[in-house]
Write a protein that binds this DNA or RNA. Structure first.
Length: 604
DNA sequence: GTTAGGG
DNA sequence: CCCTAAC
């Protein structure tokens, strides 16, 4: 299903990485503005309604997996839905925001960085991302532009998108580029730098500040992303951007490299995929409602309420055009987003489904994403290759350059639990691993089959082994695993920015935690994390430490004073025992807890 | 980057 | 869950 959304509806509502607008003080993920942005919500609501309807109508059959027929259509205001043969996509908005002019000599990595920079800074309302000019730039058509000139190249007829605010110059006639038009393109030149960036409502480029001066900022972690965002939010001067120096760029590259290297070891990619498959299988087995959502993530700057639907089966989300110079110009019209798997009980309300889907989207988009580059349907893995080497060059005839937004944590399966007031109607949404992304054309499928089947099979049981980690238990469709977590609709969005969503530990998780602490001790939370929560990306070792803290406290107080989901007394007893034990036997320099002096609390 | 502890 | 001092 492709939901075609136009204008500031979609992304605006989701606070997806988007073209900054001039309502600058608005905080991303703040409660959505109640105007057209709510359209996105309505869109999802409609989708939810349709899905539920489908689910109910097919209730006679056992299979409750909703299949949306290609012919399906529904409308909601200006929102339109279309379907594609292969994929159901949520096209969240039109894309008018990505404008790139890059030298073919630039690293793919640096280009990705720029994209990430763009999309990672949700709070940056007006951004211009600078790239060092190279010798080629002087020969580019940009030199004809004055400092304040901006190019906005659009093809309203072709795209059916009217974006007056973008069109400063007659795109067709004055385009310095050969070949076809570059929809949604906008450039400016300032000094020796080519400015790539967004245009705000005031038609001004505002330089972005605080472009992550530390490599740490590139850590593909939602936590980090949040911190960055938060810091930006609290910074009053973030709009005043220092010019990036060359050495800083190199630092970025370095940071990216080392961090990605770390990530590879820390987060096991294959395992995540296996879990993905597991989730897919499990959800399928349970006859859950599965929504496969690709997505076009983009936004129109136009205020025009009317949009023309673009072709749905667009296989490429980016257009590349050659120019006479060595620059490759392309506009990213859409981003695919990871699939969303939504599992809801039939008793769930539409409202809860709305929130759930929203949470899922927010999780992906707001939680920190990075950009993947696809060329000819294949993922470009070598970030150090130049665009030229990658085949992204003005000489190449690229018809399938694509970008994908990928979860920052390949292992992360943030399960968003939402619920209706009734406790038993939990809803879980899992973020699909990016490796399973499929594009609209169905030709950009990347699945790691490695060891997938075996793992999926071995984990298909309803009862999961302890070693599978607490995360898996969350996938378990038990009441406790799907403990309802009310999502505050009014403040939920701001909460997402301000702090992580509260995710009460399930009994399963507590059990895993207790078990781990019994064995490992209380001073090595990182090990505890790795031991039982490695796959639960939403549980940091700090979380585990905190949870243990509260567990100890809970165990000490009377049952009457306890709140929240009751923890079995047996577990609390073990908590106290373990706590007492490790209070004596400092976990720190503990290597010999197998000694016979004191039997460790190892159980099972 | 982790740990520990207060907020 | 956040923050951060301390390591």
């Amino acid at each position: 299903m492709v939901l075609k959304k136009n204008r500031n509806n979609g992304l605006g509502g989701f606070q997806v990485p988007r073209c900054p607008r001039s309502a600058r003080t608005r905080v991303p993920f703040k409660k959505p503005v109640e105007d057209d942005r709510s359209c996105a919500f309505e869109l999802l609501a409609s989708l939810a309604g349709e899905l539920l309807k489908e689910s109910e109508s097919s209730a006679s059959s056992n299979a409750s997996e909703v299949k949306l027929l290609p012919e399906e259509r529904f409308r909601n205001g200006s929102c339109e839905e279309k379907s594609s043969e292969n994929e159901k996509h949520l096209e969240i908005a039109e894309a008018d925001c990505i404008i790139e002019c890059i030298s073919a000599n630039n690293d793919v990595k640096s280009e990705i960085f720029k994209l990430e920079n763009k999309f990672g800074n949700h709070s940056d309302t007006n951004r211009v991302i600078e790239v060092p000019n190279d010798s080629e730039a002087g020969r580019s058509g940009f030199e004809r532009l004055s400092v304040d000139d901006k190019f906005s190249l659009k093809d309203p007829l072709k795209l059916g998108v009217n974006s007056p605010s973008l069109v400063n110059l007659n795109s067709t006639a004055k385009s310095p580029f050969c070949g076809e038009l570059f929809p949604n393109a906008s450039f400016s030149r300032h000094g020796n730098d080519i400015k790539l960036g967004f245009i705000d409502d005031d038609e001004k480029f505002i330089r972005c500040n605080k472009v992550c001066t530390k490599s740490k900022a590139f850590r593909p972690s939602r936590c980090i992303a949040r911190k960055i965002i938060r810091k930006r939010l609290t910074s009053k001067h973030w709009k005043v951007a220092p010019k990036l120096k060359d050495y800083e760029h190199s630092r970025y590259d370095k940071g990216i490299k080392s961090l990605s290297r770390k990530r590879k070891t820390y987060y096991n990619f294959e395992r995540s995929q296996c879990h993905t498959l597991l989730k897919r299988k499990k959800l399928s087995d349970k006859g859950s409602m599965v929504t496969r959502g690709g997505g076009f993530i983009s936004e129109s700057v136009s205020d025009s309420p009317k949009k023309v639907i673009r072709g749905i089966n667009r296989s490429s989300s980016a257009k590349v055009r050659a120019s006479k110079d060595s620059h490759v110009k392309f506009s990213i019209e859409s981003f695919r987003i990871p699939e969303l798997y939504v599992e809801v009980p039939e008793t769930a309300t539409v409202a809860s489904l709305k929130r759930t889907v929203m949470e899922a989207v927010m999780n992906i988009i707001g939680g920190g994403v990075h950009v993947g580059v696809l060329v000819q349907g294949k993922k470009v893995r070598d970030d150090n290759r130049t665009l030229q080497q990658t085949g992204i060059s003005c000489k190449e005839n690229i018809d399938k350059l694509g970008f994908v937004l990928e979860p920052s944590s390949s292992l992360a399966f943030p399960v968003v639990c939402a619920g209706t007031p009734s406790i038993d109607s939990g809803i879980s949404v899992a973020k699909q691993d990016s490796s399973l992304l499929t594009n609209t054309g169905g030709d950009l499928v990347e699945i790691n089959h490695e060891s997938a089947s075996s793992l999926a099979d071995s984990l298909s049981d309803d009862k999961l082994t302890k070693d599978s980690g607490a995360l898996v238990s969350v996938l378990d469709n038990s009441v406790e695993a799907l403990a309802a977590v009310p999502v505050n609709q009014s403040t939920g969005h701001s909460e997402l920015v301000q702090r992580r969503a509260r995710r009460p530990f399930t009994v399963s998780e507590v059990e895993a935690l207790v078990h781990a602490v019994e064995e490992i001790g209380t001073g090595r939370w990182r090990d505890v994390k790795l031991r039982c929560f490695e796959n639960a990306d939403h549980r940091t070792y700090v979380d585990l430490k905190d949870k243990w803290k509260t567990l100890v406290h809970t165990a000490k107080i009377s049952p009457q004073q306890r709140r929240g989901q009751p923890v079995p007394q047996e577990l609390l007893d073990r908590v106290l025992a373990a706590h007492a034990y490790w209070s004596i036997h400092q976990a720190k320099h503990h290597v010999k807890h197998q000694t016979n002096s004191v039997q460790p609390l190892v159980i099972m």
